[in-house]
Amino acid sequence: MARRILIVDDDREIAGLIEIYLKNEGFETAKAHDGEQALARLAEEPFDLVVLDIMMPKLDGLEACRRIRETRELPILMVSAKAEDMDKILGLMTGADDYLIKPFNPLELLARVKSLLRRSYQYNKGVADDADEAVIEVGPLRIDRRSHLVEADGKPIRLTSTEFGILALLAASPGRVFSAEEIFQQVWKEKYFESNNTVMVHISKLRDKLEQEAGDKLIVTVWGVGYKIDG
Rank of each mutant, 00 (worst) to 15 (best):
G215S: 07
E70G: 10
G226V: 10
K189G: 03
F164S: 02
L170A: 05
A128T: 07
E182I: 02
N24S: 14
R67V: 09
K217T: 13
D53S: 10
S147V: 06
P57V: 04
E36C: 13
M78D: 00
V220S: 05
E84Y: 08
K114S: 00
S147Q: 11
D153S: 12
L77D: 03
L90Q: 12
T94C: 10
N105H: 13
L74Q: 05
I76Q: 07
N24C: 12
T160V: 12
I76W: 04
D216T: 14
L6M: 08
S161D: 14
L169H: 01
E70P: 03
K228F: 08
G16W: 08
K82G: 01
A96M: 04
A40V: 13
S179E: 06
A180W: 02
R72S: 13
G61M: 08
R176K: 12
S147L: 15
D132G: 06
Q37P: 07
K209M: 10
L22D: 04
I229L: 10
A40I: 14
V113W: 01
K125S: 11
D60V: 04
R67N: 09
I68F: 07
G126P: 02
D98L: 00
K191N: 05
G126W: 07
A111G: 03
K58G: 05
G95L: 01
V150H: 03
K155T: 12
Q212E: 13
Y123V: 07
E163Y: 07
G224H: 12
I183C: 08
E108W: 07
L39P: 05
S173N: 14
I157V: 15
L210G: 05
T71P: 01
I157S: 01
W188D: 01
K114D: 00
E181I: 08
M55Y: 09
D53W: 05
R176G: 02
E211P: 01
A134D: 05
K102I: 15
R112D: 04
P174T: 14
P140G: 11
F47P: 03
E84K: 09
A81L: 10
D85L: 14
K58F: 11
M1Y: 11
A96R: 00
M56F: 11
E137D: 11
T160F: 06
S80H: 02
P106N: 11
L6V: 12
L42P: 00
M55S: 08
K155A: 11
A168L: 06
R158N: 12
K189N: 11
I229W: 03
I219S: 01
G215K: 07
G154W: 10
S161M: 09
V8A: 02
L159H: 04
G215P: 02
E45M: 13
Q185P: 01
W188M: 09
K205R: 15
D129V: 15
S147Y: 14
S173H: 15
D97S: 08
A172T: 15
R119S: 08
E70S: 13
L62D: 00
A15P: 08
E213G: 05
D85T: 13
P140S: 08
L170Y: 00
